[in-house]
Amino acid sequence: MARTVWNSTVGKKTVMAVSGLVMLLYLVAHMIGNLKIFFGAGEFNHYAHWLRTVGEPFMHYEWTLWLIRVVLVVAVIAHAVSAYQLSRRDIKARPSKYVHRKPRASYATRTMRWGGIILALFIVWHLLDLTTGTVHSGGFETGKPYQNVVDTFSTWYGNTIYVVAMIAVGLHIRHGFWSAAQTLGVGSRTRDRALKTTANALALLLTAGFLAVPVGVMTGVVS
């Protein structure tokens, strides 16, 4: 069965849909967590510490966090590999372009591939910046995410990269969520409007929620 799924264009889209939904679920949790920065350094840093102790005493220190990380890495790889293989196939299936070209499909639809690449690059930077601190501006302090976040959003490039990526994630979800519903066969004519509204709402909510943090730092609400 796994073979059938992986070898089929419909099956590979299913892999993309499921892995995409897993990442979306994580993004919602991540965004809600981020908003705790508006309640001060104490609450935010305490929340970050709690993330490492979730599930104790059943789970050891950081076990739950690592479990989530493994699931996410699997989802990212599955999503990216399927996207790459399907895109290669799509480009091969339509080698010559029309001489008379027309602007097609919505902006969100047309930017899925480039948007995905931008997001992949962003994730690498984001991890090196705020998880490992490798490319962090100023002194990275382990266990003090509040101070680290303020550092990042005090630089012009930190803000620029983040804003671009969050707009990209919004556009990606706008088309991706609705598409996932079609791929998994849950869309229908009667449900179409509700699904499109949900996709737009999720996209808007996540982009706005994530952008609240750099805006907060830039306006001095968070410092």
Binding site: V10, T109, R110, G185
Partner: peptide
């Protein structure tokens, strides 16, 4: 190629086959 849900097919179809037709096929598959 594969489907990216751009919806161009259903717009071009002279017989008005809806895009949800693809959703139905995915469900059956």
């Amino acid at each position: 190629g594969g489907c990216t849900l751009a919806g161009e097919c259903a717009t071009a179809c002279p017989k008005g086959i809806p895009l949800t037709s693809i959703t139905g096929m995915n469900k059956e598959w």
